[in-house]
Every structure is written in structure tokens, then in C-alpha cells.
Amino acid sequence: MIVDFEPAPKKVLIIEDEANIARIIKLELEHEGYKVETAENGIIGLQKFSNEQWNLLLLDIMMPKLNGMEVLRRIRDSGDITPIILLTAKDSIHDKVIGLDHGANDYITKPFQIEELLARIRACFRINQMMEKNEDEQIVTVADLKVDIKTRIVTRNSKNIELTPREFDLLVYLIQHQNQVLNREQILTRVWGFDYYGETNVVDVYIRYLRKKVDDSFHSPLIHTVRGIGYVIKE
């Protein structure tokens, strides 16, 4: 007899101090088949996060007792790479960049449509799945640039390079397609996800971030612009 086992539902933790928002998100995610729990402040949320394994964290930034940025920092400092999407009422580029630099995988600005949040969650899971499929090819290289996909350690000429999760995903995608010119739409689809809602120039912004870290301090640039088409990484 063959028994089919359904995969366990993905577990999502929502840390959000506005009870109505947390309740609505929880109901919508449960309707989509996720297993969901909530926490009303950063201290309780961090305790819940530490006590169980989660597939995704939805994290509000502005909270009493312990704000979202501090929760994010503590999680990433512990070495945990669980995908984290920030829920923020702040829509300035500066605040978003700070969140991403602290290790967030994505952000969404309040107020938002639940369809957009669901799309971003799916995109996070797709990217993680893509990374897991490539674990057999654990170390990828271009010239003296080495990327360990499993440990997420990046070095060039034996010098450690610190990348945000999104910068890391972008770099891995470029390396896995080295010598191949990739247009912005290809990069958006594979790194940000097919359902990404936002400006396409986000690719240009993150290429610029990568170049500062991967190329600017070294003699030979690896990331190249192909005018009118897109970008390529090559020796």
C-alpha cells in the first residue's frame, strides 16, 4: 500500500502590536494553508521565535518594549537565516535600506493589500527553495570571489564581504549564470519573485550596492553592465 504524506504547513510568526492588523493577517494566512501564531510585542515575539522553528517571520518595526529593528538585529546576530519580512509604516528609502541592511529579506509598507503581502511571502519561499536546491553546489566561484551557499559566507581574495540577504541572493543568481547577460526582468523574477510589486529600478540599486562591496576595493571588476540589456558577472 502506498501512503501519500502531505507536506507540513509552513509556520509563520507575526510580531505586530496592532491587534486588528495581526488578526486580519493571521486569518488570511490560515486561509492560505499556513500555520500562524502572533505576538503583541518584540519581547514576547523574540521568545516565541527562539522556542520554535519557523518558516517565516512577519515583523512590525514600530512596537513597544522592543522594536522590530532590535528584534531583527538579535535574530541575525544569532546566525539565524529565517526569512523576515518587515511591516512598516515608514516609507522612506532610508528606513527601508536600514531594514534590509540589518538582514531583512523584504519589507512592505502599511497600509497594504493582503494580496501583495501574500505575493511577497510566496516570493520569499521560492527564493529559499531555489537556494536549497543548489546546496549540492555549495561553493560557487568567479575568479577570486567565492560564495558558500550553505553558510552564506562571501569572500574575495580571502577578504570577508558582508552582504544583506537580498544582496546575497542577487550575487548567487548572477554567479550561477556567470558569463550570461541577464536583463532586469529576469533578475526581478528570480531574485524578487514573479509576484514582485515595486519599481524595476530596484535591480539597478542593488547592483550598485553589490559593486561597492564586491568590486570597488579590488583591481578587477566582476560585475559588468551591458548597455541597453542588463548585467553580467564574469572574469
Rank of each mutant, 00 (worst) to 15 (best):
M1A: 13
I2P: 06
K10Y: 12
V12L: 09
E18Y: 02
I21E: 06
A22P: 00
L27D: 12
L29T: 11
K35V: 13
K35N: 04
V36T: 12
V36A: 05
T38L: 03
T38G: 13
N41H: 12
G45P: 08
L46V: 00
Q47N: 05
F49S: 09
N55I: 02
L56R: 14
L57A: 11
L58M: 08
I61Q: 02
M62K: 07
K65C: 12
L66G: 01
N67L: 12
M69V: 03
L72Y: 04
I75T: 13
I75N: 13
D80G: 01
P83G: 02
I85Q: 03
L87V: 11
A89K: 13
D91H: 07
I93T: 06
K96S: 04
I98M: 15
H102D: 02
A104Y: 11
A104N: 15
P111T: 09
I114V: 10
I114C: 12
A119P: 07
R120V: 08
A123C: 08
Q129S: 09
E132Q: 07
E132N: 08
E132R: 12
I139Q: 08
D144R: 00
D144L: 00
L145Q: 05
V147R: 06
V147G: 06
I149A: 07
K150D: 07
K150E: 13
I153G: 00
I153C: 01
T155F: 01
T155Y: 13
R156E: 13
S158H: 13
N160H: 15
I161D: 14
E162N: 11
T164V: 10
R166C: 07
L170M: 11
L170Y: 09
L170D: 01
L174A: 04
Q178P: 00
N179I: 03
Q180Y: 11
N183A: 05
E185C: 04
Q186Y: 14
I187N: 04
T189D: 05
G193I: 01
Y196W: 08
Y196P: 14
Y197P: 06
G198E: 11
N201W: 11
N201F: 04
V202R: 08
D204F: 13
I207Q: 07
I207E: 03
I207V: 15
L210R: 14
R211P: 13
K212A: 14
K212P: 01
K213G: 03
D215I: 11
S217D: 08
P221H: 13
P221E: 04
P221T: 12
L222S: 06
L222N: 12
L222I: 05
V226I: 06
R227C: 10
I229T: 15
G230W: 03
V232P: 06
V232E: 15
I233A: 05
K234A: 05
